[in-house]
Amino acid sequence: MSIRRYENVPDLTGLLRDIELEFAPLLHKMPGFMAYYAVDSGAGSMATVTVFSTAAMAEESNAVAADWLASRGGAHPLMHVQITAGRMAIAVPPIRG
């Protein structure tokens, strides 16, 4: 799993739209892809959660994310990205009912 937190995003609405239309399909094509979530935290910040079948594949998605951001004309100079990646230790399935 990889969790990326973005702060000081200059156009969060535009970035979320582009993630849905451009970046998420790239992840979906990667081997081992399981899920992707983007959370609008408000005030120009967001977090994403990417789940792959192995920790190595999730970590590889960080490079894909960095390349994709760079392809959009480079990251905004004030935007900060914090990454936490590794093996998913606990997973609680959704309650069905």
Score class of each variant (00 low, 15 high):
36 Y>F: 10
9 V>I: 12
40 D>E: 08
38 A>D: 09
42 G>I: 01
83 I>P: 00
33 F>S: 00
52 F>C: 12
78 L>V: 00
70 A>N: 14
33 F>D: 00
81 V>F: 08
78 L>P: 02
36 Y>I: 07
9 V>M: 09
24 A>I: 12
80 H>S: 12
81 V>K: 06
37 Y>I: 09
55 A>Q: 11
48 T>V: 14
22 E>T: 07
34 M>E: 13
55 A>W: 05
81 V>M: 11
87 R>P: 06
91 A>W: 07
32 G>N: 04
56 A>E: 15
64 V>R: 07
19 I>Y: 15
50 T>I: 12
89 A>R: 13
50 T>W: 04
16 L>H: 06
4 R>Y: 00
42 G>K: 05
71 S>V: 05
2 S>I: 05
90 I>Y: 11
76 H>W: 09
22 E>S: 07
35 A>S: 11
32 G>F: 02
90 I>K: 05
82 Q>N: 09
21 L>F: 03
13 T>E: 14
21 L>P: 02
25 P>D: 06
29 K>Y: 02
71 S>A: 15
90 I>T: 14
16 L>M: 13
23 F>C: 02
37 Y>L: 10
18 D>S: 13
96 R>T: 10
15 L>H: 05
78 L>S: 13
53 S>C: 05
82 Q>D: 08
34 M>N: 10
24 A>Y: 10
70 A>I: 04
26 L>E: 08
23 F>H: 12
3 I>R: 06
34 M>A: 12
8 N>Q: 14
79 M>V: 00
10 P>C: 06
1 M>Q: 05
96 R>Y: 05
94 P>K: 06
73 G>I: 03
62 N>D: 12
92 V>E: 09
82 Q>W: 01
66 A>Q: 15
81 V>N: 04
34 M>I: 13
73 G>C: 06
16 L>T: 01
71 S>H: 05
11 D>N: 15
58 A>T: 01
78 L>W: 00
39 V>A: 08
2 S>R: 11
58 A>L: 03
95 I>T: 13
91 A>L: 07
71 S>E: 02
18 D>H: 12
91 A>C: 10
84 T>F: 10
94 P>Q: 07
18 D>I: 01
43 A>F: 11
71 S>D: 07
67 D>K: 11
48 T>G: 13
41 S>M: 08
96 R>E: 10
42 G>P: 03
31 P>D: 12
61 S>T: 12
19 I>F: 15
9 V>Q: 00
49 V>Q: 05
39 V>C: 09
70 A>P: 00
7 E>T: 14
19 I>W: 15
15 L>M: 15
75 A>S: 14
31 P>Y: 02
76 H>E: 05
4 R>W: 02
31 P>I: 03
37 Y>H: 11
87 R>V: 15
17 R>S: 06
43 A>P: 03
65 A>G: 00
54 T>C: 01
79 M>A: 04
54 T>M: 03
77 P>I: 03
38 A>E: 10
52 F>I: 00
48 T>Q: 14
74 G>I: 02
44 G>K: 03
22 E>Y: 06
35 A>E: 10
50 T>L: 14
8 N>G: 05
51 V>L: 15
51 V>F: 06
91 A>D: 12
89 A>S: 12
29 K>A: 15
47 A>K: 11
83 I>R: 11
6 Y>D: 03
55 A>T: 02
74 G>P: 02
